[in-house]
Write a protein that binds this DNA or RNA. Sequence first.
DNA 1: TAGAGCATGTAATAGGTTACATGATTAG
DNA 2: CTAATCATGTAACCTATTACATGCTCTA
Lengths: 191, 191
Amino acid sequence: MKSNRSRYAILGVLSEGPASGYDIRKTIEQELSHFWNESYGQIYPILRALAEERLATRRRKKQRGKPDRQVYSITAKGRRALREWLSEPPSLQTERNETLLKLFFSGNLDTTERRELIEAYREKQRERLVEYEGIERSLEESSPEHPDLKFWLLTVSHGRAEARARIRWSDQVLREIEAREVAKGRSRRRA
Amino acid sequence: MKSNRSRYAILGVLSEGPASGYDIRKTIEQELSHFWNESYGQIYPILRALAEERLATRRRKKQRGKPDRQVYSITAKGRRALREWLSEPPSLQTERNETLLKLFFSGNLDTTERRELIEAYREKQRERLVEYEGIERSLEESSPEHPDLKFWLLTVSHGRAEARARIRWSDQVLREIEAREVAKGRSRRRA
DNA sequence: TAGAGCATGTAATAGGTTACATGATTAG
DNA sequence: CTAATCATGTAACCTATTACATGCTCTA
């Protein structure tokens, strides 16, 4: 079994119920966007492949006034494949952090630009905290009785913990480079 | 100017001094591996392109007993390109987290597998904390007087803060799913 | 009447990993 | 003798984003 993570993200959404490519995109956007994303360019070809491999079935639903929907449903084989993947240890790959890359080489920047880099990072994490409110609410409202709701909310709590840690780190960095600035100012005056 | 992050990671390494593709790989592995990675399949073609665009120059160094080295040096134009990229706001793209994806759909797992998923995550973060010791030491020893050392160490401190937050989150999750287990056990006995 | 939402899909392009080929030296 | 290190590079493949094409309906 190939280990394409997008396949399993899509199978995962299908495990909650039948859906079209469009639905899947929307679900991922609304409920998983804090740690996952998929574009149509991935979704549609993968759905076709899932159907060919009998991990999902497809049927066309006619609609009036709207384009036809291709609705996919997970099969028993699909559920088995999903469960198998879920129980494998996650593949480890370095997560890249562009802000850290820029900070690492920020000797090539002036102090203002470096401060702005960190301030922007901090601000982005603050925005994420706000987004989590919305995601949490939308998860709770969409299916308040769903037995898996608790797991969904735990992913939000992960995002919050991470964002808060990054904000604290940013504050620490800003204090440090601030202190350095002041020290430099003093030594310039003394010189 | 194209916004290929690998180009700039490589230019960044070259901004510290001349290096071969092999050197660059090693440097990234030793000093940036906690937030960045590059494979030879990226490095060699990009170096060639950088030379063609006059962002770097290349000269062949003969060696006895070892293959020749192709040593690249950043040019003034290369430094300008790097500085320009560094001062642009980082491109935002969702960081994917495979563990969270699995947790989200872990309704398809049994409780033991779910616990193992989180325990493995926790353990990976603990391992990262140990790796940071090594990275920090290697950074400090390789160039203890380097004016940018402080920025390099800040990237390590970011990694630590993140790993610690993730460990705390894991502990919280483990407590929660443990509590749920106990509750279930009780209700089963009562039933 | 403009724009957003519904809905499917493909093509071009970009970004990235892995495997392979080659071959000498050095350390255990 | 074996494995690791030095060193460069390519080809095949996989993964992912963006732009494009199409066209209806509903809302502001």
